[in-house]
C-alpha cells in the first residue's frame, strides 16, 4: 500500500524537518540518559550479562513501538521503513559492530548521550566513528559487489519469512516480550 502521497514528510518544509530532528534528538538523548544507558558500567554490564538495564530498555521499546507502529500502519497513518536483509552483511557487519561496541562501551546513540552526560571519552569513540565511516566509504564499492549480494533478500520481514500473518507475529511476539521482560525483572542480577 502506498501512503507516500499523504506522507507527513511532504508536509514539512526542510527547516521544519531539521528542527523536528533536533527536537526528537533532545527527547531521545534525554530518555537514553534517564534510562541509564549512557553509563559505561551499565553498557559493559549488558555485554557481560551482569546488568539487564539495556535489555529492559530495548525490549520494552520494541514492545511498545511494535504494537503502536503496527496499529498506526494498519490505519494508513505511517509508512514503514524496513531495512534490507542481507545475510552476510548483517552477520559480518553485526559482529564487527559488536566488537567495536565492547571496545568503546558506547554505541552510536548512547555515545552521543554519554558525551552530553559528561563522559568525555565518548569524544574519542565519536571521532573513531567518523573515521570508520570514511573507511567504509572507501571499501563500499567493493563490499557492494562482493559482500552485500550474499544472501540479499531485500525488505524481508519475519511474517514473510515464516508465512505467518503479521498480526499473529505482532501480538504473539508482544506476549513473548512481556514474559521475557517479567523474567528479566525477577532474574536481574543486581
Amino acid at each position: 500500500m502506498d501512503t507516500r502521497e499523504s506522507a507527513p514528510e511532504q508536509r514539512l518544509s526542510k527547516p521544519a524537518r531539521l528542527a523536528s530532528g533536533l527536537a526528537f534528538g533532545v527527547c531521545f538523548g534525554f530518555l537514553l540518559q534517564k534510562g541509564g544507558v549512557a553509563k559505561f558500567e551499565i553498557l559493559i554490564g549488558a555485554l557481560l550479562l551482569e546488568d539487564f538495564t539495556v535489555f529492559e530498555v530495548m525490549l520494552s521499546a520494541i514492545l511498545v513501538g511494535m504494537l503502536g507502529v503496527h496499529i498506526l500502519h494498519a490505519r494508513g497513518l505511517v509508512e514503514l521503513h524496513i531495512k534490507p536483509t542481507r545475510y552476510a552483511a548483517n552477520i559480518i557487519g553485526g559482529l564487527v559492530f559488536g566488537a567495536g561496541f565492547a571496545l568503546s562501551a558506547y554505541c552510536p546513540g548512547t555515545g552521543a548521550a554519554a558525551l552530553g552526560q559528561g563522559n568525555y571519552d565518548a569524544l574519542a569513540m565519536m571521532t573513531g566513528m567518523v573515521a570508520g565511516s570514511y573507511l567504509f566509504a572507501e571499501a563500499s564499492a567493493w563490499l557492494a559487489r562482493r559482500v552485500e549480494p550474499i544472501g540479499d533478500r531485500g525488505e524481508l520481514t519475519l511474517p514473510q519469512l515464516t508465512s505467518v500473518p503479521k498480526a499473529v507475529w505482532v501480538w504473539g511476539l508482544g506476549a513473548v516480550l512481556i514474559v521475557v521482560l517479567a523474567l528479566l525483572k525477577t532474574a536481574s542480577p543486581s
Binding site: 520494541i62 536483509t85 557487519g93 564487527v96 559492530f97 567495536g100 561496541f101 570508520g132 567504509f136 519475519l158
Partner: peptide, 30 residues
C-alpha cells in the same frame, strides 16, 4: 571501537537504534 562500530554499522545497515529498536519493531529479519 568507534572505527569498528561505524564500519560494522554501515555494512550491517544500522546500529543499536536503527536496527536494534526501529528495525526490530518493524519485524525486519535483517
Amino acid at each position: 571501537g568507534g572505527v569498528l562500530m561505524a564500519f560494522g554499522a554501515r555494512l550491517a545497515g544500522g546500529c543499536t537504534s536503527g536496527h536494534g529498536i526501529s528495525g526490530t519493531l518493524q519485524l525486519s529479519v535483517g
